[in-house]
């Protein structure tokens, strides 16, 4: 019998991250949910219904917090099969401080988390999944403002490319995912209602994209909620 797979998911408190947690739990995975907002109770309620869910605090913008999360994860599992980066932020202004914060959370944070978790992934399935955005696609970008968000996602995409260049030959596989326009909480404590998709919609596609193997893993591809391919 195949042993249970384990996944760590950042930004799991709510929205897309939470929905992805639910999806992996439904498919029998051991889910370690990276929690940023301890006051947000959805994860706690989900844990009460699922023995396969563990919650680990993590702030992806703080290297000490990331190291502490790794330490806690090691105590929960000897091996990590998949790491999913969902944690992200959007600020609708481009002050130097706002730009720095978006770069910190959206671009540098995933690098820090990846670097710190890599040793724990060596004995596992070695899959790294990044929730990016069409906003990071330079060739297709259509925005006329929100520089900070766009540059943070472009920088993320570059970092993923560079990690791919190193880690692919060591057996790691990569997924880069544009979740679509989803009703989420990225800007407020209120879930938006104007987007065409719900977090559960994109989580279903993400699960397939993240877990299914591809005929060729040597190509880095960004796919979306409709399983279409994007330039990035």
């Amino acid at each position: 019998m195949e042993s249970q797979h384990t996944v760590f998911i950042t930004g799991a408190d709510r929205g897309i991250g939470f929905a992805i947690c639910q999806e992996f739990l439904q498919h029998g995975w051991h889910v370690i949910a990276g929690q940023y907002m301890s006051a947000w109770t959805e994860l706690t309620h989900l844990q009460q219904q699922n023995a396969n869910l563990d919650i680990v605090p993590i702030d992806v913008s703080d290297a000490n917090s990331v190291q502490a999360a790794v330490k806690q994860t090691v105590e929960l599992t000897g091996r990590l099969d998949m790491l999913i980066h969902v944690a992200g932020i959007i600020i609708r202004e481009d002050t130097p401080e706002a730009v720095r914060t978006m770069l910190q959370v959206n671009a540098v944070g995933p690098m820090c988390v990846t670097r710190c978790f890599l040793p724990l992934m060596e004995g596992g399935r070695k899959r790294l999944c990044f929730v990016s955005s069409e906003a990071g696609s330079i060739s297709l970008a259509h925005r006329k403002n929100e520089y900070g968000y766009g540059v943070s996602k472009a920088a993320l995409n570059m970092s993923v490319r560079m990690m791919f260049n190193t880690l692919r030959r060591e057996g790691f596989t990569f997924r880069l995912y544009h979740p679509g326009w989803v009703n989420s909480y990225m800007e407020t404590t209120q879930k938006s209602t104007i987007a065409p998709y719900e977090p559960e919609d994109t989580a279903r596609t993400a699960y397939r994209a993240f877990t299914e193997d591809r005929r060729c893993e040597d190509v880095l591809v960004m796919t979306d909620i409709n399983e279409q391919t994007w330039s990035f």
């Binding site: 770069l103 671009a107 990071g136 970008a141 006329k144 403002n145 520089y147 472009a154 920088a155 570059m158």
Partner: peptide
């Protein structure tokens, strides 16, 4: 390299 990618995106938004 991440800075170069970011600069490319700035150019694109400026272009738009």
């Amino acid at each position: 390299h991440m800075s170069q990618a970011a600069a490319g995106m700035i150019m694109k938004i400026l272009f738009n």
